[in-house]
Write a protein that binds this DNA or RNA. Sequence first.
RNA 1: CGGGGCGUAGCUCAGUCUGGUAGAGCGCACGGUUCGGGACCGUGAGGCCGGUGGUUCAAGUCCACUCGCCCCGACCA
Length: 574
Amino acid sequence: MRWTQTFIHTLRQDPSDAEVVSHRLMTRAALISKVAAGIYNYLPLGLRSMSKLQAIIREEMERAGSAELAMPAIQPAELWQESGRWFEYGPELLRMNDRHERDFCFGPTHEEVITDMVRRTVTSYRQLPVNLFQIQTKFRDEIRPRFGLMRGREFVMKDAYTFHADAEDLDKAYRAMEKAYCRIFERCGLGYTQVEADTGNIGGSESHEFMVLADTGEDAILSCPDCHYGANVEKAEAGPVPSAPDWPLDRSDRPKSVHTPEMRTVEEVATFLGISPAHLIKTLIFETDEDFVAVLIRGDLEVNEIKLKNELGCTHLQLASEAKIEEITGGSQGFSGPVGLEGVRIVSDPSVMALEVAATGANAADAHLIGVEPGRDFEPSMVVEIRLATAGDPCPSCGKDLVEKRGIEVGHIFKLGTKYSEKMDCRFQDADGNDQPMIMGCYGLGVGRTVAAAVEQNHDDKGIIWPLPLAPFEVVLVVLNADKPAVVEAADSLYVQLIEAGIDVLFDDRPERPGVKFNDMDLIGFPVRVVLGGRGLEAGEVEVSLRSDGEKRATPIAQMVPAVQALLVQLRSQ
RNA sequence: CGGGGCGUAGCUCAGUCUGGUAGAGCGCACGGUUCGGGACCGUGAGGCCGGUGGUUCAAGUCCACUCGCCCCGACCA
């Protein structure tokens, strides 16, 4: 491809709305351009990178036994009503009507459509398993789209679905997918880690996320420096906590109220009372699907809302509003406590029950209670492990201290079980003639997000440094002095040689000044560069270099193609 | 959804407080000089100052509404 025949218009200045490196560079390098919040054009260069990733995905999915199909972007409401998600999904689901006022949505995922398709066709265990994937544009009306392709509203995703007669067979497919994902990210040259994940509202029994490690990642993960354990903080098991220091104040037969004007935070109250944050019982009022719950956690610890949600078995969970807190507790926010609290369930973390003496809010304005003894002064309706794990907690598999890292979630695989097959009546007859729901798995991989993650992980202050497999072009041929016919003629010939050698090359044939061309070449980040100018031509040489090291290798013109090929081989073997 | 900010040339932004002929840099076009790491000189094109309504002799500037975009928050009291 010639530069003058494609559409590459780089930006000299940073776009005003780009925050993270990948968004900034992908915009400046003319890979993407914004159409609306969270909605982008994939420009020719960006599309090439996306296509290359898609080709890798296709190969690996097929290797893992999955067949490609394509499902519609627009889906009828009926299917979503059947699964119940029409009502559960909320405003993230983009809904629309056709001219007959029938309800549709733009698919954010395709469990409903594929389950419907499979149930119409598959009736016997002899037809199982089924393993299908698609690469498709999806839409999720995110609360706050940001970071370019990292959290867009419209995005390209590979999603696969499997259907099985039994759990062992699902496990087999799950392991194959796991392996396929590892191969995909390895082939892309990305540093990634696989972590245990929560299954979220989508449901299911086992789940892993694939995270590309990057400081700008939106997810916190805990991993073990020694063994292979890694988990999303939402999922990570919290180890035992060190017990609180000795209670520094007097003990009494019953809690004593103290005046704590405007002391709302744990820090403030602890300092004011002269106790440790670990002596406080933090009391949070949550709103669930049907009621309100008071949740107790030791003052120096945090609640894992995902664990709490799972323990409560609810789908909706959020902190109650200020007004509700006052209605329920009689005190304002920051002054809630379990003592004498009535009308709501009280859920406590074991860390609270382990306290001998504690302090907590008095459910009254500007007052806290001291000398509170869990079990004597209040009795929770439920004691469950709901603490958020943090760095320093012991690894569940080997006991070492876990460390926290940040990552970009690029893949997520689930064992769904029968959640959708039961609701949507997707059943089969087993060998004994019994009617059973199929057991399902689903496997997502963000295509745009993976490309963005690659940029996030591979760049310098000049621009992108593409890993070879995802580069829009593997090689760029740059002609300087494009006003001199002899140089142009020589460059044309080099271009033809590269094309004939089957090399993936972009020919920068623009009549631009050298500085402009060099800067664009660095910004876009083609892995291998071939530069020919008047000076070189006279010496019978071209300059071959790598984006990654910048070292210029003067090469006889006749040796250009083999020199480029050698560098490509070198890059491939890295 | 709450808080904050911003919409002025293709891009990045001044000008708005204090109302009075629409600005800069980059980019673009033309001419010239340059030509191996974002050149220089000259000439020029390019704006319903996001939209609607109001105040005023007069609005990019003040007021109201509205649309769009960005940031923070929406979880630890």
